[in-house]
């Protein structure tokens, strides 16, 4: 089926131009996205399935998987609560300073992950602001799991809020007001009216946040200390194996992360499809 642009004489390009654009675009796409993706799996399986299996089941790799899951399980729900709270006050209310708040929420998108890691070292490291106090109380944040969690939260916290805010703004406050007039409490309104309306965006925000949480490298590598079996996440484990020239093992662990990315993209596509449907229904109401 042709798009409406291809059928319309005013928006149609000559066939040669059309195919030139498509070919150039696809070549770029293949060289920069498809081939790197394929090469991960190729390199991972090059030495055979046994080496692959061994690489992902050895104790250090399993420890890395466990730590990565733990970090995601802590940071994603925290970001979820933050995302909903931020979206509620920003999208449903007007107050001075809203734009500044939005800018701060966007900040992690443009701060280098390495700088993020450094920031937490400066605050919680041995020579940092709270370093002395932490040491005196025998607490460790940097080069330990809490530091990894903090850095991960910083890098991933905008994703859910950023998905929710535009949608909740677009939906306005009518349905919430209707719920309140009908006697619902604030929590009931949030639970029965607001959240179901942003369900798909919320799910997408969560999976994206999750993918980034599991895959974060730069920030985590600064605060982790890379102690095998203890503070090594999957991406860090990939780096260590790679630097030790254990390429097959590095790519094997990397392939797990690549699979996670693919699953994320598949869910994203499904969610977008659903959201577009809801959007159409919504548009039909006016």
């Amino acid at each position: 089926m042709q798009t409406k642009f291809e059928r319309n004489i005013a928006t149609r390009e000559p066939a040669w131009l059309k195919w030139t654009i498509i070919s150039l675009g696809l070549l770029f796409f293949i060289f920069f996205l498809v081939m790197p993706l394929l090469s991960i799996f190729y390199e991972a399986l090059r030495r055979g399935i046994d080496v692959y299996w061994e690489s992902i089941t050895e104790p250090d790799a399993l420890a890395a998987v466990r730590l990565t899951l733990l970090v995601a399980v802590i940071s994603v729900p925290l970001n979820l609560v933050f995302g909903v709270a931020a979206a509620w006050c920003i999208a449903k209310f007007d107050f001075p300073g809203k734009h500044i708040l939005l800018t701060f929420i966007d900040l992690p998108f443009s701060v280098s992950p390495v700088v993020v890691g450094l920031m937490y070292v400066l605050v919680f490291g041995v020579n940092g602001w709270f370093g002395g106090w932490l040491q005196a109380n025998d607490l460790q944040i940097i080069f330990a799991v809490p530091g990894i969690v903090l850095a991960t939260i910083f890098v991933t916290f905008p994703f859910i809020a950023r998905e929710l805010i535009p949608l909740m703004e677009a939906q306005g406050r009518d349905e919430e007001e209707a719920a309140i007039v009908l006697g619902a409490s604030g929590w009931q309104t949030l639970w029965y009216v607001t959240l179901p309306n942003v369900k798909w965006a919320l799910i997408y925000g969560v999976i994206l946040s999750n993918a980034r949480a599991m895959g974060e490298f730069g920030a985590v590598s600064v605060v982790s200390g890379k102690i095998r079996g203890l503070t090594n996440t999957m991406p860090l484990h990939v780096e260590i194996l790679y630097n030790e020239y254990m390429f097959a093992a590095a790519f094997a662990v990397a392939s797990l992360l690549a699979l996670l990315a693919l699953v994320t993209l598949i869910i994203k596509t499904l969610v977008e499809h659903k959201a577009a449907q809801t959007q159409r229904d919504f548009a039909g109401e006016h």
Binding site: L37, S39, A211, G218, P235, L265, T269
Partner: peptide, 18 residues
């Protein structure tokens, strides 16, 4: 269309070695 977002979802270290 779906794979365009791969760099958002793929961990950077994985992209780097690939």
């Amino acid at each position: 269309d779906a794979l365009i977002d791969l760099p958002f979802a793929l961990p950077t270290a994985v992209a780097g070695i690939a």
